[in-house]
């Protein structure tokens, strides 16, 4: 599979706080990279020690293996006072990076995979919501999403109907906005930054910007890690391993509208690294 248009996108490659002088080796879109401190500043090189562009944002080091076609996407909430910014860490998953993002967008799995945390039976219905591509920023947005959750966040006490918005702002990055239990009228932000190591292996770097003055940082991290570890076992057993852009054996339903919009957006932009183009 050609890397194609995905070569010119931004990707997370590590926590800013985790970069060392000695550095470490990693992969990006199947190519070797190295992340290290150069004069105290994080730097990234590609094959042949070619310097790659670097951005430091949202607690992470970002790079682009090609020529960036646009700046790194903006998450304005990252600069709002009163939010706690949480670098969750890394979770390696044996799945397509596109599958990891698609799973993040899937509300319908909450009661079955995150039972009694993000969902519970019999509250399994996904009510109708709106999905579209915002042409001015070329992002997928799902809005007016509502779902009942027994424990929507670490700070939630008891079940609440949670409002959501989903945003796909890069081929392997998605941001979820959800009702903030302690701050009605504000959104908690949970982002999934995915580093595509290969077409079937990725490092997932969740990041959060929350209103929560009570929970310890350790508890916040453990809560999000628990959610993602539950997802990992599902992700690593999905077939086909690559994300199909032709539905083929899968039958998407109206509850999958965000996933359908994401796949259409990938197809339209030629973001096909990690995708299966023709149904098996």
């Amino acid at each position: 599979m050609s890397v194609g248009a995905m070569k010119d996108q931004w990707y997370p490659v590590g926590l800013i706080s985790g970069v060392t002088e000695e550095g470490r080796d990693s992969l990006l879109l199947g190519e070797p990279i190295r992340i290290f401190l150069d004069g105290g500043t994080p730097a990234v090189t590609g094959e042949g020690e070619r310097p790659l562009p670097v951005e430091l944002r949202y607690g992470h080091v970002w790079t682009c293996p090609g020529t960036p076609t646009r700046p790194l996407f903006d998450i304005p909430e990252a600069d709002q006072l009163g939010r706690r910014l949480v670098d969750v860490g890394v979770c390696r998953v044996r799945c397509s990076p596109l599958r990891a993002v698609e799973n993040f967008l899937d509300i319908a799995h909450f009661p079955f995979v995150h039972t009694d945390i993000l969902g519970s039976e019999p509250h399994t219905e996904v009510t109708r919501y709106e999905v579209g591509i915002r042409e001015d920023v070329d992002e997928v947005w799902a809005t007016k999403v509502q779902f009942f959750q027994p424990q929507a966040a670490k700070s939630a006490e008891g079940g609440i109907t949670t409002d959501y918005m989903y945003r796909v702002c890069a081929p392997t990055c998605s941001v979820l906005y959800k009702t903030s239990p302690p701050m009605p009228g504000e959104w908690d932000v949970i982002a999934l930054f995915v580093q595509p190591l290969t077409e079937t292996l990725c490092d997932v770097w969740p990041w959060m910007a929350l209103y929560d003055d009570d929970a310890s940082m350790t508890d916040l991290i453990h809560f999000q890690q628990l959610i993602f570890v539950q997802d990992r076992s599902v992700l690593e057993n999905q077939l086909p391993a690559l994300l199909p852009l032709d539905p083929g054996m899968e039958i998407p339903t109206r509850a999958d509208l965000t996933s359908v919009a994401y796949r259409r957006w990938l197809k339209r932009n030629g973001f096909t690294y990690g995708a299966q183009l023709v149904a098996a």
Binding site: L245, D246, V260, R263, A279
Partner: peptide, 13 residues
């Protein structure tokens, strides 16, 4: 029929 609409939005590559 809703599922058919979803399928059509994707279609063959």
């Amino acid at each position: 029929l809703d599922a058919m609409e979803m399928g059509c939005l994707l279609g063959p590559y």
